[in-house]
Amino acid sequence: MENTTSKEVVWHAHGVSREDRSRQKSQKPCLLWFTGLSGAGKSTVANALDCALFEQGKHTFLLDGDNVRHGLNKDLGFSDADRVENIRRIGEASKLFSDAGLIVLSAFISPFISDRQMVRSLFTAGEFIEIFVSTPIDVCEQRDPKGLYKKARAGKIKYFTGIDSDYEEPVNPDIILDTSKHSVDECVEELIELLKARKII
């Protein structure tokens, strides 16, 4: 998308800094980026982690692919170009939430390495945590909670990731989860240990 920002638009510095908000909340703001195929368990694990962190008194916000397409991105389809714009907007929204001192959880297929790298570039080192939910496609297709794989196989949905649109696996994710081998609770436990090790919480 063309950058239409003119030189008359100037960044405004606020009196309350990102660091101030982080200290107030006794946590380090970051973005937990869940990526993987449809049906892999991204939203399920992200939601369970969000609940667990909330119970611990942490300040979080969860952005989910379907929910965002009901509002912010309801004008976008599923072509490659629209997928890129979808992730760009989510990255920018996630950055704003993290600037507010929050731990942001984003659950999106986000199939392209370049798009995930673009979002990573918005954050300082260590604040973008890539979580690859690597559940095999045959398991995802067996689950098919929304019936999307069945529709894609029948040609009723085009540009469906894993069927007629590529998914580029993360090269060096911060953590890999496979929900066909581990329960949601086990995945959440692993993620909390990672956040503690990174001194996020």
Rank of each mutant, 00 (worst) to 15 (best):
L96A: 12
F97H: 13
F97D: 09
F97T: 10
S98I: 14
S98N: 07
S98W: 13
S98G: 13
D99P: 09
D99E: 14
D99F: 06
D99Y: 07
A100H: 14
G101T: 05
G101V: 09
G101I: 05
G101S: 11
L102E: 09
L102R: 14
L102C: 14
I103H: 10
I103S: 09
I103A: 11
I103M: 14
V104I: 13
V104K: 10
V104S: 09
V104T: 14
V104P: 09
S106Q: 09
S106I: 12
F108G: 10
F108W: 12
I109C: 09
S110P: 06
P111M: 09
F112G: 06
F112Y: 15
F112P: 02
I113M: 11
S114H: 11
S114V: 13
S114I: 12
D115R: 07
D115T: 11
D115S: 14
D115G: 02
D115W: 03
R116S: 02
R116F: 04
R116L: 03
R116I: 04
R116Q: 05
Q117P: 03
Q117V: 04
Q117F: 05
Q117G: 00
Q117K: 15
M118E: 13
V119Q: 04
V119C: 06
V119T: 04
R120W: 01
S121T: 02
S121Q: 15
L122P: 00
L122C: 06
F123Y: 12
F123W: 04
T124D: 13
T124W: 01
T124E: 15
A125N: 14
A125Q: 13
G126C: 07
G126S: 06
G126K: 06
G126H: 08
F128C: 08
F128S: 03
I129P: 08
I131T: 00
F132T: 07
V133Q: 05
V133G: 08
S134F: 00
S134I: 00
S134Y: 00
S134D: 12
S134N: 15
T135S: 05
T135H: 03
T135Q: 04
I137W: 01
D138R: 02
D138W: 01
V139K: 10
C140K: 03
C140N: 00
C140V: 01
C140H: 01
E141F: 04
Q142E: 10
Q142F: 00
Q142W: 00
